[in-house]
Design a protein around this nucleic acid. Structure first.
Length: 497
RNA sequence: GCGCCGCUAGCUCAAUUGGCAGAGCAACUGACUCUUAAUCAGUAGGUUCUAGGUUCGAUUCCUAGGCGGCGCACCA
């Protein structure tokens, strides 16, 4: 990119840059003493008397009128109009102003007044160039009716050059503020309840805690293959064995799967574990935590997203896996043979899914995904999953064919997964052996035996409840963004063609 | 991985049954001391995603590829 072609637009800016330097203006400053944000400066306006302010930000509009010039300056707080007059700035400084372009970063010292047309404006007494934009930013214009003209709409450019997307789209910056406030709320919520935030390895010799294919890497000094974690689960439960009692981690997991509107190869998960609790406690905690996030960030537990009115007020709907499959697929899992499951999957799959080689648990899971998930619009706990699909969860009291596990769904999408954590080391070993066998038989997403994890359980894991909550998906819901790429600052893309 | 759609000036978009590639904004020159899509006059700006093919001639038609969007599959 260092050999980027010089466009005529860029050439004009570079010529202005050179001219500024000839005039003794340093185009890239070290600092600026700002006294007011744009919003503060607007608020500082008083009809009687003119407040002095120093504002700083990016020029997003320039309107020259010969010996005067109007501009708009934008910073993190908003926009404010600037007014430059030759007779007030003097010839030299006014000539400098004429060398400015939209996109330049400037600081302006002046008094706040109101124009004849009623717009609060800073009348510039001095201008400082803070950074020359030698490349034009695609800043659009909006007309009196609010219609947008020009601007940056190409998705590819927006993702590849997120800095430009952010620079020209205040609403995109707002999505990431919402994301930060969401994470901040969750952290505060858990801290207040005695949870300890911990950091567990991203580089793991054995990966586990979820069904997924990992990224593989190599440590040179150890001459050892390592994996990027697909989950934090097994390390966090080791912390519970060690007596930390309540732990959580908010961090990236990495899964070597396809990319689409709701999947990025690295994504952010909150996992938390609480000793002496079971999945009923985790349901109560999830309800309280998520209702709190929604109320705090959206102002109400009832919100409308993607055209659907959603109500996050506790308690949420609860339904068992089995009754949902019965209701939406018309199949009673206790009394359905594999052939019927095959038929059900074949009936709805668009040809890509071939049920022929599927094990029964996979078939059941497929039926659930095809028939049940899309129907779960309102916040819903799906409880009591088949035990075969839940190798890290305790069997359900009274029915060992089921696991004490729930998933939390909104608008057809899984936001959280939780269980009463399996703490019997012998049972855990057996279940991981079944996974290993499936893996040997070709299931690339089956879990791997982790002897050290079983060893940890042998020392005694107290009864424990745990939750995994997908942060990106929660933010997608709150910010009403249909693509995960719109809630991840720098999403993964193919290399440029 | 599969299917559909898209890729033209810095940005947003036009255009040709296959016949010199255009507009608005941005830029440049000039006029303009309360404008706000400022206005007015003028100027400049293109590997039409890439590589082949068909053709007198391809931005347009065909083939392959790249990147992106959407859907499907996989997955969270």
């Amino acid at each position: 990119m260092s050999e980027a072609p010089e466009h005529h637009l860029e050439a004009a800016r570079r010529e202005a840059l050179a001219e500024l330097r000839r005039r003794g203006v340093e185009p890239f400053a070290y600092r600026y003493d700002r006294t007011h944000s744009a919003a503060d400066a607007l608020a500082a306006y008083a009809p009687d008397g003119e407040e002095s302010v120093r504002v700083a930000g990016r020029l997003v509009a320039l309107r020259g009128h010969g010996k005067t010039m109007f501009a708009h300056l934008e910073d993190a707080s908003g926009r404010i109009q600037l007014y430059f007059r030759r007779d007030e700035l003097g010839d030299d400084r006014y000539e400098m102003v004429r060398l400015l372009h939209v996109g330049d970063l400037v600081g302006v010292d002046g008094k706040v007044f109101m124009t004849r047309t009623g717009e609060i404006t800073v009348r510039a007494a001095d201008v400082t160039l803070l950074a020359k934009a030698v490349r034009p930013l695609p800043i659009g214009k909006s007309d009196a009716e609010g219609r947008q003209h020009g601007g940056l709409v190409d998705h590819e450019t927006r993702y590849r050059q997120r800095y430009a997307d952010l620079a020209v789209h205040p609403e995109v910056r707002e999505v990431f503020r919402l994301r930060a406030r969401t994470v901040s709320y969750l952290r505060r919520f858990l801290d207040e309840r005695g949870f300890l935030e911990v950091e567990t390895p991203v580089l793991q010799p054995i990966y586990g805690g979820a069904m997924a294919r990992p990224f593989t890497t190599h440590h040179l000094a150890l001459d050892r293959q390592l994996y990027l974690r697909i989950a934090t689960e097994l390390y966090l439960k080791r912390c519970i064995v060690g007596g930390l009692e309540r732990v959580y981690e908010i961090g990236k997991d990495f899964r070597n799967e396809g990319l689409d509107r709701s999947h990025n190869p690295e994504f952010t998960m909150l996992e938390l574990y609480q000793a002496f609790a079971d999945y009923e406690d985790m349901m109560a905690l999830t309800e309280e935590m998520v209702e709190g996030v929604v109320r705090t960030l959206c102002g109400d537990a009832r919100i409308e997203r993607f055209g659907t009115a959603l109500d996050f007020a506790r308690p949420w709907r609860r339904a068992t896996y089995r009754e949902l499959v019965h209701r939406h697929a018309g199949l009673d899992l206790a009394d359905t043979d594999d052939a019927a499951l095959h038929a059900a999957v074949s009936a709805v799959s668009a040809g890509g899914t071939d049920p022929a080689g599927m094990s029964r648990p996979k078939l059941v899971d497929e039926v659930f995904k095809q028939y049940v998930e899309p129907a779960l619009e309102q916040p819903t706990f799906v409880v009591d999953f088949p035990i075969e699909l839940s190798p890290l969860a305790k069997p359900k009291r009274g029915d060992p064919t089921l696991a004490e596990r729930f998933e939390f769904f909104v608008l057809g999408r899984e936001l959280a997964n939780a269980f009463s954590e399996l703490n019997d080391p012998d049972d855990q070993r057996r279940r991981l052996e079944v996974q290993s066998a499936a893996r040997a038989a070709g299931d690339q997403e089956a879990q791997v035996m982790d002897e050290d994890y079983v060893l940890a359980l042998e020392y005694g894991l107290p009864p424990t409840g745990g939750i995994g909550l997908g942060i990106d998906r929660l933010v997608m819901l709150l910010a009403e963004q249909p693509s995960i790429r719109d809630v991840i600052l720098f999403p993964q893309l193919r290399s440029e063609g």
